[in-house]
């Protein structure tokens, strides 16, 4: 750069500083212009409006018997819904929270005790745990078992054993009526 500016250095310092200022200004404008293009360009890779519009789903629960499960898709991920039996509820409520990896009470994870709704994605590295079907391996704690790396979840979807750091996430949902929930 310096070689270019030096070639004919007849001018006084005054002009030099003003030019330096203008160069900075031009550089700033160039940076802003580039940024003004790059921000929408990168933002276009975020979820599009049609994707966002599908971010709620209503689920009819009337066909899930006590002890049964249902899996629905929400935002491209499986949602595990379990109609828990009385034993499963007691089992989940009786655990000493202080012994857990991720300390959450069962009450804080359900709207109604008989319905457990969790995102069916292992919090370790994103596999789908087994346990939705009665024939599946439910793990030692009667919930779900992730066959990828052996994480075990209880009947409240909490991590009890294995490498996963957190409980299965609870998606935002609410009961529209007694037998219908709206997720998202």
């Amino acid at each position: 750069m310096s070689a270019g500016a030096n070639i004919q250095n007849g001018q006084h310092d005054d002009g030099e500083t003003r030019r330096g200022f203008m160069q900075m200004l031009a550089g700033a404008f160039g940076a802003v212009g580039l940024g003004a293009f790059l921000v929408p360009a990168v933002n276009s890779l975020n979820p599009a409006k049609d994707t966002l519009a599908l971010s709620t789903v209503e689920v009819d629960l009337s066909d899930v018997p006590v002890g049964g499960s249902k899996t629905v898709m929400w935002q491209g991920k499986p949602i595990f819904i379990r109609h828990r039996t009385a034993e499963e509820i007691t089992e989940a409520e009786d655990v000493d929270v202080q012994t857990l990896t991720d300390k959450q009470t069962d009450e804080s994870r359900v709207e109604k005790p008989e319905w457990l709704v969790v995102v069916g994605v292992c919090t370790h590295l994103g596999c789908i745990p087994q346990g939705q079907k009665t024939t599946d391996n439910h793990g030692e704690f009667g919930g779900w078992f992730c066959s990828c790396h052996g994480s075990q979840y209880d009947t409240s979807g909490r991590i009890r054993k294995g490498p996963a750091p957190k409980n299965l996430a609870v998606p935002p949902y609410k009961f529209v009526n007694d037998t219908t929930i709206k997720i998202g």
Partner: peptide, 24 residues
């Protein structure tokens, strides 16, 4: 965008003239 570019073009024109002014 057009206003931004107008100002930018003005700055560049000034800078270009200033740069070229010292050519003899």
């Amino acid at each position: 965008v057009i206003l931004f570019l107008l100002v930018f073009a003005g700055i560049m024109l000034g800078l270009k003239k200033k740069t070229w002014a010292d050519l003899h």
